[in-house]
C-alpha cells in the first residue's frame, strides 16, 4: 500500500476512536477535557524521559497517561470542595501542570531533548515510516496497530457498558436512583479518555486529537438526540474529517493534522447552518399554521 493510504487509515482510526469516546464528553459537558489533558501531560513526558533517559514510546505514554488521569482526578477533587466552579477548577489544574512541565523542561534542558510545545506532537505524515516489525516481518505502520487497538478497546468498552454510560451521561440523578454509581463511571470514562488521547497523541499529534475528540461528537449531537445514532454519526463525521483533511493538506501542501481540524470546522459549520435553516422553515410553517387557525376561528 502507498504511504498516503496508510496516513488516511491512521487518520480514520484516530478520528473514529476519538469521536466515539468524545461523544460522551459532549454529553457530559466536559468538552475542554481534551485540551486540558493535552497540556497537562507535559510533566509526565519529562519525567518518563528523565527516568528512562530515552524517547522510548512506552514510558512516555505511561507518564502522559498518569498525568492525564491526574488532571481529571484533581479537577473532580477541586470542584467537589465546592469552592470553585468546575470549569475554573479544570483551568487551574491543567495550567498549573503545564507550568510545572515548562519549568521542568527548562531545568533539565541539557538532559532533555524536548521542546515545550512539540514534545508530544507526533506528526501523522510520518506514520507510514514508523513500522511495527516482528521477527523480521514488517507488519505495517505502528500507529495503525496502536490506534486500531485503541478503537477496539473503546468499542468494547462502550458496547459492554452501554447502559451505564448512557444513563450516567444523560441523567446522573436517574443513574443514582437505579443504583449506577455516577462517580465510578465518571472515573472509568475519564480513564478511557486519558488512554485514548495519550496513545493517539504519540501517533498523530495533539491538535488532531483534541479536535477529533470534540468536533465529531458535537456535530453529531446537532443532528440527533439518540445516543446510538450520535455515536454512529460521530464515527462517520470523523472519517469525513480524516479523508477531507488529508486531501486538503496534500493539495495545499500544509499540515495534515491542522487541515483535519479545519475540515472538522467546515463540516460543523455546514451542519450548524443546516439546523438553523431547518429551524427557520419550521418556525415559518408553525407561524402560518397558527395564523390559519386564528383566521378560521375568528372567521
Amino acid at each position: 500500500m502507498t504511504p498516503d493510504i496508510w496516513v488516511m487509515i491512521t487518520g480514520i482510526l484516530a478520528a473514529s476512536a476519538l469521536g466515539l469516546i468524545g461523544s460522551f464528553l459532549v454529553l457530559r459537558q466536559n468538552g475542554m477535557l481534551g485540551d486540558a489533558i493535552s497540556h497537562a501531560v507535559l510533566p509526565g513526558l519529562v519525567l518518563a524521559f528523565l527516568i528512562t533517559s530515552s524517547r522510548n514510546v512506552v514510558p512516555m505514554v505511561i507518564g502522559a497517561g498518569l498525568f492525564g488521569l491526574l488532571t481529571a482526578y484533581l479537577t473532580e477533587l477541586l470542584s467537589q470542595t465546592r469552592r470553585v466552579y468546575s470549569d475554573a477548577a479544570m483551568g487551574i489544574v491543567f495550567t498549573l501542570l503545564f507550568a510545572v512541565g515548562v519549568i521542568m523542561v527548562a531545568l533539565f534542558a541539557e538532559q532533555v531533548d524536548l521542546d515545550q510545545e512539540c514534545v508530544l506532537y507526533g506528526e501523522i505524515a510520518y506514520t507510514p515510516w514508523n513500522t511495527f516489525v516482528v521477527g523480521g516481518t514488517n507488519l505495517g505502520p505502528r500507529a495503525v496497530w496502536i490506534l486500531g487497538s485503541v478503537l477496539l478497546a473503546n468499542l468494547g468498552f462502550i458496547l459492554l457498558f452501554y447502559k451505564q454510560l448512557k444513563i450516567s451521561s444523560f441523567d446522573p440523578q436517574m443513574a443514582v436512583a437505579v443504583g449506577i454509581s455516577e462517580k465510578k463511571w465518571h472515573y472509568l470514562l475519564m480513564t478511557m479518555v486519558s488512554l485514548t488521547v495519550v496513545s493517539a497523541f504519540e501517533s498523530v499529534g495533539a491538535i488532531l486529537v483534541v479536535a477529533m475528540l470534540i468536533i465529531p461528537g458535537a456535530t453529531a449531537y446537532l443532528l440527533t438526540s439518540r445516543l446510538h445514532t450520535m455515536l454512529l454519526l460521530s464515527v462517520g463525521i470523523g472519517i469525513i474529517c480524516a479523508v477531507g483533511g488529508f486531501m486538503g493538506a496534500s493539495y495545499f501542501d500544509a499540515s495534515i493534522a491542522g487541515f483535519m481540524a479545519v475540515v472538522g470546522g467546515i463540516v460543523f459549520a455546514l451542519v450548524f447552518a443546516g439546523t438553523l435553516i431547518a429551524k427557520r422553515i419550521h418556525q415559518t410553517r408553525y407561524t402560518s399554521e397558527r395564523q390559519h387557525i386564528a383566521e378560521t376561528i375568528s372567521g
Binding site: I207, L208, A211, I214, A257, M260, A261, V262, G264, G265
Partner: peptide, 9 residues
C-alpha cells in the same frame, strides 16, 4: 481546535 488547526495550516 478549528482556529488553532487553521493557524497550524
Amino acid at each position: 481546535t478549528v482556529f488553532f488547526g487553521l493557524g497550524i495550516v
